[in-house]
């Protein structure tokens, strides 16, 4: 349904060109959930905004790539045509429910605006639809709540309203950019549950962006792991979490404190910081922080290659080599622990 082909989104700054998204390809089918995971600055939000063409141009420009939605390349469309797709065919939920709603308009009006922009309906019908939507997203007493202002809602409730607005025109794709990062865990559980129910009911495809590997594991069927503007591993959710083949993904999983770990295992230190995207490192972008990096990694920029039908990895280590490297490292760790005692 949506196909992103070798997309590059670069941003012009006074210091040079930031390669925020640097050659990303993926597809999404109807009713599917794709998760994009990465740390801050990995380009995941720029990627999501590119699909909606929401990055300000300039400074953002797209030197290469296509975003094909229902046969049309979104990068080539005029503003007028884009506006027909935005909100109607592809809708978006943003991270911060506190600032995404207009504080001076009533919830009901903002919801009706979303409906009336794309449909010629009498106001009474739009109102009816708005109330339906609020019921759908689980807001109690929706008729009364239509007249409330955003400040009268808590964070979780506002996120529900934003989901209602996004759903107003039955979009085919819903892009959720860190939808629960600003919320407490119990509220996060409610919102994720709601998103799943809505997907079942309407058959919406969801692109969920998060830095939280747990959220991705819970929601996504397919996962893209991003690092410094590129996809470094992609595949089914089980491939990514159980048959991890890229050192970056593996390190991320190892650096996560686990609720189920027996003893106080030491977390894996990923040394250093995410790279500067104006002057990315030579070779593989991850090599300065990679525990398995060799001399070759400084020279060769690995391409995303197929490991199994759905599993792609950007690393020069083959599956066997990676396994051995992990084993070697675990042995070193064990010795380190013994020395420590």
């Amino acid at each position: 349904m949506l196909e992103v082909k070798n997309l590059k989104a670069h941003i012009d700054t006074t210091d040079g060109v930031v390669r925020a998204v640097d050659g990303v390809s993926f597809t999404i089918k109807p009713g599917e959930t794709v998760g994009i995971v990465g740390e801050s600055g990995s380009g995941k939000s720029v990627l999501a905004h590119s699909i909606m063409q929401l990055n300000p141009k300039p400074p953002t420009f797209y030197p290469q790539g296509e975003i094909i939605f229902e046969g049309k390349d979104l990068l080539q469309l005029q503003d007028k045509e884009l506006r027909k797709i935005r909100g109607k065919e592809i809708a978006m939920i943003f991270q911060d429910p506190m600032s995404s709603l207009n504080p001076v308009f009533k919830i009901g009006d903002q919801l009706m605006e979303a409906i009336l922009t794309h449909h010629h309906l009498p106001k009474s019908k739009a109102k009816q639809r708005a109330i339906e939507l609020l019921t759908d997203v689980g807001i109690p007493d929706p008729e009364k709540r239509m007249n409330a202002y955003p400040h009268q809602f808590s964070g979780g409730m506002r996120q529900r309203v934003l989901i209602a607005i996004a759903l107003a025109c039955n979009p085919k794709i819903l892009i959720a950019d860190e939808p629960t990062t600003a919320l407490d865990v119990t509220i996060q559980a409610q919102i994720l549950e709601l998103m799943k129910n809505i997907q079942e009911k309407y058959g919406t495809a969801i692109i969920i962006i998060s830095h939280d590997l747990g959220v991705i594991a819970q929601m996504a069927e397919k996962v893209l792991v991003m690092y410094s503007g590129r996809i470094v591993e992609k595949g089914d959710v089980e491939d990514i979490f159980y048959r991890t083949s890229m050192p970056y993904t593996w390190s991320l999983l190892r650096s996560l404190p686990r609720i189920d770990s027996e003893s106080r295992n030491r977390l894996l230190n990923i040394e250093g910081h995410p790279p500067n995207l104006i002057h990315p490192p030579s070779g593989c972008n991850f090599h300065p922080r990679c525990p398995f990096a060799s001399e070759q990694c400084k020279m060769v920029d690995p391409e995303l290659t197929k490991r199994s039908p759905e599993h792609y990895v950007a690393c020069i280590l083959s599956e066997m080599e990676f396994k051995e490297a992990k084993k070697r490292m675990e042995n070193v760790e064990r010795e380190g622990d013994l020395n420590h005692v």
């Binding site: 994720l192 747990g214 594991a217 819970q218 979490f241 159980y242 609720i259």
Partner: peptide, 11 residues
């Protein structure tokens, strides 16, 4: 609270 935490185990 414990059950609300999403765990990195998809299955």
């Amino acid at each position: 609270l414990l059950s609300a935490i999403p765990l990195p185990y998809p299955l």
